[in-house]
Design a protein around this nucleic acid. Structure first.
Lengths: 355, 355
DNA sequence: ATTATTTTTTGGATCGATCCAAAAAATGTG
DNA sequence: CACATTTTTTGGATCGATCCAAAAAATAAT
């Protein structure tokens, strides 16, 4: 049907090898012959060496599969700034390696993972362990993020605990002593303040990274000699718009807020403005994840850079290099903008009275 | 090196064909033999039929390449809600066809397009025509959007002119007679109001779709018997934050605004609120593109659904079906939310005096 | 002009699987 | 049991190119 290299070779009256060399090693064939082949190719409308053939011989595909949560067509992940940063990191590594990335659906009994023409996989989010089985079965290198998936699996993790700890320490260094936290509890319904005994332990209700965040915050507070039971924690879904209101209602005396996400932090800032609470003079706010909105918000948000781009880049580099079992831990870095400030004595006093 | 199907066949003492059938047509081989082959496979650690081999035989790859503007690692397209909608449309078609999508860099002399293992391409944005040459050379079907690229190229276009026209007609039907427009002029510097003679024709300074939008708006106004020279047009970059201010400064008597983008429309709404201009009672605002922010803004924005998702879906369907030279024109649909309202007589009078 | 050296060209094997027609084996019928 | 029919299994060819060692041709040296 289609014109093949061998057709071109025959038309130019040369061997397949020579025809092949015209494309793969042009300098190894005499200009005269090369021209003859090129003419034959043009005359026949040859599309050039078919990568499908080349790939079989070469073994390497120069492409990695990114397995998204669910199907990309309905997934909301493409709307998540953090996930997009992660994808861009992967893309950077691919650009550098001259590779391309395949967006693979994670269908049930995923045909995608089983039959994708790739050199390896990256799992952006682990929801079910059986996807990993499928990847294992392919015997290709793969990487997961923020997940421990056994000895021969590349893993890039973010030390959310250390990051959170440093963020809270930043607030403590500014003189803050009374805190409130927007924490996540997935699938819990409307935002609510849970009693300490329940709210301190996210095992089973939060995802692992949420637990880490809470632990880091608690550790910083404990090390500063603060009573962690005094800290008000609002538990909410990441998208719950009532969380900020509930938090400001419930913790009128808090001078510093740490939020598990940048969006919730921005919501707090906006709600504060509505109530004529000045950020950062009356209230310091720190978020998690450095999304574009964080820099644009007013005042610009002090937040943790959760290294999503690096996470993607390193995961992709592991896979592209054919590595297995590597482990890399990234530590979030605090980006101090203008939503945090030194606690002013009169504000502290004033707030204390509102308790 | 790696275990091949033939190794498994030898170990199980069957022919390659039988071993192949165990994976491709399990019901065609006797259970007894099938089990023997499966055991041999497990014993050898066989990874299953290598897709690279299958693909060569099958011809079809079940995958399409999406060529983005520039490199995906640095591209800002993944941050653009409209482009993400477009990608999701492609992903939907891929999901339905059990295919996957490859994100291909559009490097200079793109290695990506030349060697990608795909059944076809989709060009998300055409910046240089030589990319299309490369795709042509591969002799694979491909699709472009909002661009006319010759007879055997699939094209999906959006009739921005008709869409814009209907949006302005919506405003006219509500009684509005004095308009202002936020138009785009790429690379023009800070937002500015250009004299009619210059600002009415975007040829050469805008991209094609911007010209269409302006033409549609003008047509609606002309058909309603309005003098288009009375319409104030602010020309700006899409991201210019001063456009909304300039517009409200320059057109105090306008009762209706049409913006070339949703973000600029939202900016107008926000700026109006700052000035105590009530939307929609004092001012109706219509945007272009239905991004998530449009529904969330306050009041929810009346805007044109530019059919980005369908655009992607149809383009992908063309390519996946191996079609060539198809053409599909989509017409934007107006989504009436709450940023537009019937013009109130006293508002009209009041504004007229401010001229 | 003959031999030695270098550059080009070539045929065979390979990458890993699938398809198809023919052979072999199993099953059914008289 | 002999023969017809159906189900399984098999070897050969193919998908489209690339690599490698050997052959052929061109160039250099004696």
């Amino acid at each position: 049907m289609a014109v093949r290299l061998i057709d071109v070779a025959r038309a130019a009256k040369v061997s397949r090898s020579t025809a092949s060399n015209v494309y793969a090693n042009p300098d190894r064939v005499r200009p005269q012959l090369r021209e003859r082949v090129e003419e034959a190719a043009k005359a026949l409308g040859y599309a050039g060496p078919d990568p499908k053939g080349r790939i079989l011989r070469a073994g390497k595909v120069n492409s990695i599969g990114v397995v998204g949560p669910g199907q990309w067509g309905v997934a909301n992940v493409l709307r998540s700034p953090v996930f997009v940063q992660f994808l861009q990191g992967i893309a950077q590594a691919c650009d550098d390696a001259g590779a391309s990335m395949v967006l693979l659906p994670d269908a049930p009994h995923a045909k995608g993972i089983g039959s994708a023409i790739v050199d390896g996989f990256i799992f952006g989010r682990i929801e079910q362990l059986d996807q990993l089985d499928l990847a294992h079965r392919r015997r290709l290198p793969f990487a997961v993020v923020d997940f421990n998936a056994g000895p021969d699996v590349n893993a890039v993790m973010v030390d959310a605990r250390a990051g959170t700890k440093s963020a809270v320490e930043h607030l403590i260094a500014l003189g803050h002593r009374r805190f409130a936290i927007v924490s996540f509890m997935r699938g819990i319904g409307p935002a609510s303040v849970l009693p300490p005994a329940v709210g301190r332990d996210l095992t089973g209700v939060g995802i692992q990274i949420d637990q880490e965040k809470l632990a880091g915050a608690m550790q910083a507070l404990a090390e500063a000699g603060l009573n962690i039971d005094d800290v008000l924690i609002v538990h909410a879904e990441p998208w719950d718009e009532t969380a900020a209101k509930l938090l400001l209602d419930s913790a009128p005396d808090a001078t510093a807020i740490f939020s598990f996400s940048a969006m919730q932090a921005i919501a707090v800032i906006n709600e504060a403005r509505r109530r004529n609470i000045h950020v950062p003079d009356d209230l310091s706010v720190v978020g998690y994840n450095d999304i574009p909105e964080a820099a644009l918000c007013n005042p610009p948000l002090t937040t943790l850079d959760s290294r999503s781009t690096e996470k993607g880049r390193i995961a992709a580099e592991f896979v592209l290099a054919g590595k297995r079992g590597r482990r890399h831990v990234l530590t979030p870095e605090i980006i101090v903008r203008h939503s945090t400030a030194k606690l002013l004595a009169h504000v502290d006093l004033d707030k204390q009275l509102r308790r």
